[in-house]
Amino acid sequence: MNTTSPADAPVVREPLHAPVAHVIRGGVVEGIHYGSVVVLGADGEVLFQLGDIEAAFYPRSALKPVQAVAMVRAGLPFDGDLLSLAAASHSGEESHLAGVLRMLEPAGLTEGDLRNVPDMPLDPAVRDVWVREGRPPSRLAQNCSGKHAAMLCTARLNGWSLDDYLDPAHPLQQAIAETVEELTGQRVARVTVDGCGAPLFSVSLHGLARAAARIVSAAPGTPEARVAAAMREHAEMASGSARDVAALMRAVPGLLAKDGYEGVQVAALPDGRAIAVKIADGAGRARVPVSAAALARAGVDPALLTAFAGEALLGGGKPVGSVRPVRALDAAASATAA
């Protein structure tokens, strides 16, 4: 465990985002997505940055691998698909729901013990099936149920209270906060409530990238290495069979990747190279191509990233444009590839 004291908390301010992607239709820039990007080398140095990588922000679900590390440190015994699910923003597929029940049942827990917000499945196709079948929102189907099940199991193993496991003062959440500060290398700036009801810790984009790098480069057998292995080997459990994050982990050998609501993406390679992205307006259509360009800037072969170049813009049902990373990010990636 790293015993170095974390640095001061990032400054809470309006982030100084910069253009990171252009919406191009028929050769004309129709729109601009603002955001911030950081690329770290294997030595932890900043290789590339765009926008504001030091302002406090909320990583949302991109912080789940860090939360999972904290729970494994606290005794959570899961590995493989269940540990991947503990760090997941899952799609609500039947394998995800069954996995959450597999987590809960040995601990004598049920869906009724979960304190996340009832919701429909995250994946649109799965959600449509639920609607057609008349199935109501449930805590099990909500995309954070794996994390909440893991939190409950960790609390039970340690003899901690269950009803208030989401209280920031609860021993579980205190342990998670300590791990967030250790792995990001900075103190938490603010604590609020995430969409699922769990505490959410504000760090910087730079700190988020550092945390991912430390997780993937940790020694075998450590909690960090166990989380990284589980997510990489069971990418569909960490997201979903049709999700871009799972596809990205399948496409790039050894890559650990996690998305977060409001346009957040973090990814890291086994040698510690890492990227983190925040799209200011939360647009997923910009998150994917910007993240791919950042990974190319980190040295990933662009040929592995062609499927993540961005969705086409349609006119009359035919492609007439696309969402492209700005020239500064694209040029950096091209230079690295060359």
Rank of each mutant, 00 (worst) to 15 (best):
116 N>W: 00
103 M>Q: 11
122 L>M: 12
148 H>D: 04
107 A>T: 03
147 K>Y: 05
142 Q>K: 07
152 L>Q: 03
103 M>V: 09
147 K>G: 05
132 R>N: 00
135 R>I: 10
107 A>E: 13
136 P>D: 13
123 D>E: 12
112 G>R: 08
125 A>S: 15
113 D>N: 15
123 D>V: 10
145 S>N: 01
145 S>D: 01
141 A>Q: 05
116 N>Q: 09
106 P>I: 08
121 P>D: 02
151 M>E: 13
144 C>F: 12
152 L>P: 02
106 P>T: 05
102 R>V: 10
124 P>S: 14
134 G>V: 03
138 S>Y: 01
113 D>H: 14
102 R>K: 15
117 V>S: 04
141 A>C: 07
126 V>P: 03
119 D>K: 08
147 K>D: 06
141 A>D: 05
104 L>R: 11
147 K>I: 00
123 D>P: 06
118 P>V: 05
135 R>K: 15
132 R>H: 05
143 N>P: 06
104 L>T: 02
107 A>Q: 09
148 H>I: 10
130 W>N: 00
133 E>V: 00
120 M>P: 01
140 L>T: 11
106 P>K: 11
149 A>I: 03
114 L>G: 09
107 A>H: 09
119 D>V: 04
138 S>I: 12
149 A>K: 09
133 E>H: 01
102 R>P: 02
145 S>A: 11
138 S>F: 05
135 R>C: 00
132 R>I: 00
128 D>P: 00
130 W>E: 03
112 G>L: 08
135 R>Y: 07
127 R>V: 01
115 R>N: 10
130 W>R: 02
129 V>P: 00
109 L>K: 06
121 P>F: 01
136 P>K: 13
147 K>F: 03
125 A>V: 15
137 P>C: 04
125 A>K: 14
149 A>M: 11
123 D>A: 05
150 A>K: 00
119 D>W: 12
130 W>I: 01
114 L>T: 08
110 T>E: 09
111 E>N: 05
151 M>C: 13
150 A>H: 03
131 V>T: 09
108 G>V: 15
137 P>A: 05
103 M>A: 11
102 R>A: 15
123 D>C: 14
113 D>G: 08
129 V>G: 02
145 S>C: 14
119 D>L: 08
116 N>A: 05
139 R>L: 12
126 V>F: 04
110 T>P: 09
111 E>S: 00
114 L>I: 07
147 K>L: 06
130 W>K: 01
141 A>R: 09
119 D>H: 07
142 Q>W: 00
111 E>W: 01
131 V>K: 11
143 N>M: 14
134 G>D: 10
148 H>C: 06
139 R>D: 03
112 G>E: 15
139 R>S: 05
103 M>P: 02
102 R>T: 07
111 E>H: 04
142 Q>T: 07
116 N>D: 07
106 P>Q: 01
149 A>R: 08
111 E>D: 06
132 R>V: 04
146 G>L: 10
105 E>M: 09
137 P>V: 14
149 A>Y: 00
118 P>R: 08
139 R>I: 12
132 R>L: 09
115 R>S: 06
141 A>E: 08
148 H>P: 06
127 R>M: 13
108 G>R: 13
143 N>Y: 08
112 G>D: 14
145 S>W: 15
102 R>C: 08
129 V>Q: 14
151 M>H: 10
104 L>P: 03
137 P>S: 05
118 P>W: 09
103 M>T: 04
110 T>K: 15
